[in-house]
């Protein structure tokens, strides 16, 4: 019979990933629940999840492509911007939802015993449905515009992983802090929304010059989107400067996990 020991908070530094992996079934249960709730009592259900990317495609293509004439080089602008929005909307969903996951589910957090890190991570799964729909539309666009299959496309999942980690890194920090500072609940969704200006979602990196370019290099989501475009659309290979942002992201992610783990023991007392 396994024996569990309950002890006061220790000073041991841990990321809590072990606990996460042993609670994977619960993680998927949370994700399924999110998806079911999302489509509960909607008449057209999944239609809205298809409508969103298509309307975004049309609006952004018309506004930035035709009206403002943003130059996306040889790549057709609709494909270019859609590829950026694919990653960016997933990031926004993940950072926002996982960041607020403890506060919005405080009833469960206060009363159930499970590793709380499951909650922010479960959003990576529940966000996949929308991501999948966007991705399918992107593939259709690629075929329509006559893109050919290339072996570099196999590198796409690597950038997708970084995309997940970027969303989670922000989300985990916000989740851990929001337990004590509920103020984040007000400001975070707004800030995440504003981050579109420092991320090359609708514009190419090349349009930004000077020191502003370094802001993009430090933003890991820029590297992710450049990676998406490189692997799928065959744009220029991303500059090695983007590794700066990825390095920062890794630090943010790991410290976030450790910080979350440290706060976890007090979550039920504070939230």
């Amino acid at each position: 019979m396994q024996t569990r020991r309950i002890t006061p908070n220790s000073d041991k530094i841990s990321t809590g990933l072990g606990e996460l992996f042993s609670s994977l079934p619960l993680l998927f249960a949370f994700a399924r629940r999110d998806i079911k709730i999302k489509y509960a009592q909607t008449y057209m259900g999944i239609f809205w999840s298809v409508f969103q990317p298509i309307s975004a495609l049309v609006i952004v293509s018309l506004f930035f492509g035709k009206l403002i004439h943003l130059d996306s080089g040889e790549t057709p602008y609709p494909v270019f911007s859609f590829c950026g929005m694919l990653g960016w909307f997933y990031f926004v969903y993940l950072a926002g939802h996982s960041g607020l996951s403890l506060v919005t589910q405080q009833d469960i957090v206060r009363k159930a015993s499970f590793p709380k890190i499951v909650l922010p991570f479960s959003k990576a799964i529940s966000g996949l449905l929308d991501y999948g729909i966007w991705f399918v539309i992107l593939i259709i666009l690629l075929i329509v515009y006559g893109f050919e299959f290339k072996f570099r496309m196999f590198l796409f999942p690597a950038f997708f992983m970084i995309n997940i980690i970027a969303g989670l890194a922000v989300g985990i920090w916000v989740a851990a802090l929001s337990v004590r500072y509920r103020d984040l609940y007000q400001i975070v969704p707004y800030l995440i929304g504003m981050s579109i200006f420092v991320t090359p979602v609708v514009y190419p990196v090349e349009t930004v010059s000077g020191w502003m370019r370094y802001v993009l290099y430090l933003n890991p989501m820029s590297g992710v989107l450049e990676g998406y475009r490189w692997t799928l659309l065959g744009t220029q290979i991303p500059s090695s400067n983007f590794l700066l942002g990825f390095g920062l992201l890794l630090i943010l992610f790991i410290t976030g996990l450790i910080f979350f783990k440290r706060t976890e023991n007090k979550i039920a007392d504070l939230i």
């Binding site: 569990r4 002890t7 006061p8 908070n9 206060r110 015993s113």
Partner: peptide, 18 residues
Amino acid sequence: KTLAGITKPTSGYAEISG
């Protein structure tokens, strides 16, 4: 809550078998 591990004790410990 303490026995369930939802909240941590300030001092002392518990051992749960099963």
